[in-house]
């Protein structure tokens, strides 16, 4: 039995199979519409996350399965002091697979170590959010046709953004990827990632200005500056609108440069960019459903 706790739990070969399955689901959804009939997904969300939870639930419903669960800690036994380990043992009696989000880091690992059903980490604090990484990789795979041989710009909050860290760790396993990190000085990518890139001799640049590097990008991954990461409101206000991707900046980008964003977007991408065919962040949400469908089928060993 396999769990998904970190994006690196799957080898690149396993990811290839997953993405090809997701491709097939996109092409022929009807073929998969009843594959999970009689199966139940438990969505155990100890903190609210509408998008991720709905994506998992949609994925299971698209496969003909059912969904049970809770969407915040207050409506679970955690409010009575039940441990993650005990809740997991109980859920195993009800469901066939479980997607868990928890504000504490390592919660999904605790669940997996006590579980008799596959556990999917749907986010554990600032630690891991592997299905977001699968979604990002799937979008690149589907729309670029390759995972490698490109220059990717990551822009915004590169210090606290766990989606960025996970994506970098996942992409270094592919050939010929160059990273351009675009951030204000205060939100630079952490040193341990820079050290890892140096060790693996993977090319990277750190820049502050988006306009100057946008022409060389094949992919631009925008992120939001998150208010909750700052202790000081003044710093947040100063940095939140540091980058705003607009039509003028998009005019400098390559004709096939795709713009991704894990969403929710605030001000960092102007709404006028939504009309641009290269803006694929809403398509990314759809690919998130396909890849979660493929993941559920894979972990339940139904394919």
């Amino acid at each position: 039995m396999k769990h998904l706790l970190s994006p690196l739990d799957f080898s690149t070969e396993e990811l290839d199979s997953l993405f090809h399955l997701a491709d097939d689901i996109e092409r022929e959804p009807g073929k998969y519409a009843h594959m999970c009939a009689g199966k139940k997904l438990a969505t155990c969300f100890y903190e609210p996350s509408t998008r991720t939870r709905l994506s998992f639930e949609t994925a299971m419903l698209n496969l003909g399965g059912n969904v049970i669960g809770f969407s915040d800690a207050a409506s679970s036994s955690a409010s009575k002091g039940e441990s993650v380990a005990d809740t997991t043992r109980v859920i195993c009696c009800f469901a066939d697979i479980c997607a868990m989000r928890h504000p504490k880091e390592g919660a999904a690992y605790v669940a997996a170590s006590r579980s008799s059903i596959p556990i999917i980490n749907a986010g554990d604090g600032g630690h891991q959010h592997p299905t977001q990484t699968l979604t990002d990789l799937m979008t690149i795979h589907a729309l670029k046709g390759r995972l490698g041989n490109f220059t990717i710009g990551l822009c915004g909050d590169l210090k606290f953004g766990r989606t960025v860290h996970s994506l970098i760790n996942a992409l270094v396993r592919y050939e010929n990827v160059k990273f351009i990190f675009i951030s204000p000085e205060e939100l630079r990518v952490p040193d341990y990632i820079i050290e890892m890139l140096k060790e693996k001799e993977i090319p990277y640049e750190e820049v502050i200005n988006l306009e100057s590097c946008i022409p060389q990008l094949d992919l631009l991954y925008m992120t939001r500056v998150q208010r909750e990461r700052f202790f000081n409101e003044e710093d947040y206000v100063r940095l939140k609108d540091f980058y705003i991707l607009d039509r003028a900046k998009m005019a400098l980008a390559k004709q096939d440069c795709l713009v991704l964003h894990p969403l929710p977007r605030v001000n960092e991408i102007s709404v006028e960019v939504d009309e641009d065919e290269r803006a694929v962040y809403f398509k990314q949400v759809q690919y998130g459903v396909y890849v979660r469908m493929a993941l559920i089928l894979t972990l339940l060993e139904l394919v």
């Binding site: 441990s83 993650v84 380990a85 928890h102 504490k104 880091e105 605790v110 604090g125 600032g126």
Partner: peptide, 10 residues
């Protein structure tokens, strides 16, 4: 932020 900070028996 670690799960061990709230689950003492781990």
């Amino acid at each position: 932020r670690c799960i061990t900070s709230i689950e003492q028996e781990l």
